[in-house]
Structure formats: structure tokens, C-alpha cells
């Protein structure tokens, strides 16, 4: 953890506000620590990888996932109800014709309850400003060179849904188990800034 002066100063300010709120009955003792533990034990990119691997292994699941992701992910023991309230999950599938990429231009909406906190680059003005305007250029910076004929669909998470990209199954992965398939999936693949 950072120990510089700026960090210790805001750290003291946050502690002070917590103590004040506890004294006013707006925060229970231990409530913050409990919420942090809950948060860290909650979402992880591995959840997204499991969903993707099941969709690759089971075309019927993939179909249900694209039609109603909230219901479908219960089949793999997951749900979108882990946050402040259950949020709608919208899964968008990459195809040979179209590559999808997700952004929140207005703030930083992301399926946190499912995937954990988003990476800092996803929250940055740099990414949020540019990917809607020049997605091909941004993807190239991430090392993802799409064929010129591949259409790009950008999804702006501007309201209540949260998004997950279903990457294309890599070539030559036919003999892999579902767990091995899940091991191929990256967080960037789930956002659309990597192929998988």
C-alpha cells in the first residue's frame, strides 16, 4: 500500500468520516470491513471465464445466454444479484463478421458483482473518450488487429444493463475440457479489448 503523504492524508480523512458516521448511527461498527471482505470475495473474472467456457462447450447454453443472461448464468451457479440490486446482464457475442467492445462513456459501469472491479484503464478518460470514436485504433493499441472486413460494435453502458462479451472460441481448442477452455479467457476478452 502506498504510504506517501497524499495517501496518508486522505486515509485519515476517510477514517475520520467513518468515525463520525458511526457516532451518528449511520454506520455500524465493523460494517465497512465486512463490506470490503464481501466485495473482495465476490466478483472475479473467473466467473466470466466459466460462463464463456460453458457457452463454447454447449451451444444450447450459448443461445439461452444471449437471450436472457440473468437466467442462463444460474445454470453455472452465478447471479447478477450480488451488488446493490440485481442488474440486467447483456451478453454480446463476437462472430466472424462482428467484434464487440464495451465502454461506459459517462462513468465506469461494469458488472462488478460478477467480475470484480474493472481495470483502471477501463475507468480512464483516455479509454472512455476514444473507444466510441476510434475503436479500431484503440484495439490496435491493445494489440488486437482485426481483419479490415470485421465490423466493430461498440456498446456504451449508459443505463442499467451491464455487459459481457462472448469471445469467439479459439481455433484448435476442440479437445479441451470446459475448465481448460475457461483458462483461455482473459478479462480483456470479456470487455472486448482482446480476442479471447
Amino acid at each position: 500500500m502506498s504510504g506517501d503523504h497524499g495517501s496518508s492524508r486522505i486515509s485519515a480523512q476517510v477514517r475520520h468520516v467513518e468515525t463520525l458516521l458511526e457516532s451518528r448511527g449511520l454506520l455500524a461498527a465493523g460494517e465497512v470491513d465486512g463490506r470490503i471482505d464481501e466485495f473482495l470475495a465476490g466478483g472475479t473474472p473467473a466467473n466470466g471465464a466459466r460462463i464463456v467456457a460453458r457457452a463454447w462447450a454447449d451451444p444450447g447454453f450459448a443461445e439461452r445466454l444471449l437471450a436472457d443472461a440473468n437466467t442462463a448464468i444460474r445454470e453455472v451457479g452465478l447471479s447478477m444479484a450480488g451488488g446493490l440490486q440485481e442488474q440486467r446482464l447483456k451478453v454480446v457475442a463476437n462472430t466472424a463478421e462482428t467484434h464487440n467492445v464495451v465502454v461506459c462513456t459517462l462513468c465506469s459501469c461494469y458488472p462488478i458483482a460478477l467480475l470484480g472491479p474493472s481495470p483502471s484503464w477501463y475507468k480512464s478518460e483516455a479509454y472512455r473518450s476514444r473507444v466510441v470514436r476510434d475503436p479500431r485504433g484503440v484495439l490496435t493499441e491493445f494489440g488486437l488487429e482485426l481483419p479490415a472486413g470485421t465490423a466493430i460494435a461498440v456498446w456504451d453502458a449508459s443505463a442499467e444493463s451491464r455487459y459481457l462479451v462472448l469471445p469467439r472460441r479459439p481455433e484448435g481448442a476442440a479437445s479441451l475440457t470446459e475448465a481448460e477452455l475457461a483458462g483461455l479467457v482473459t478479462r480483456k476478452g470479456l470487455i472486448g479489448t482482446a480476442a479471447v
Partner: peptide, 25 residues
């Protein structure tokens, strides 16, 4: 209702061959 509304990038920015789908009330 909230809708996924798809725009052609060229209609938003005057350039680009991609689409942008925005979620709008």
C-alpha cells in the same frame, strides 16, 4: 422503457465504419 439504440458512427462523428449502441431511456 430503456432501449439499446444503435447508431452508425458516421452519423455521430462524421466518420468511422463502426456502430455505437447506447442504452437510452
Amino acid at each position: 422503457s430503456v432501449w439499446h439504440v444503435r447508431f452508425a458512427a458516421a452519423d455521430l462523428f462524421g466518420e468511422g465504419d463502426h456502430t455505437v449502441t447506447v442504452e437510452l431511456w
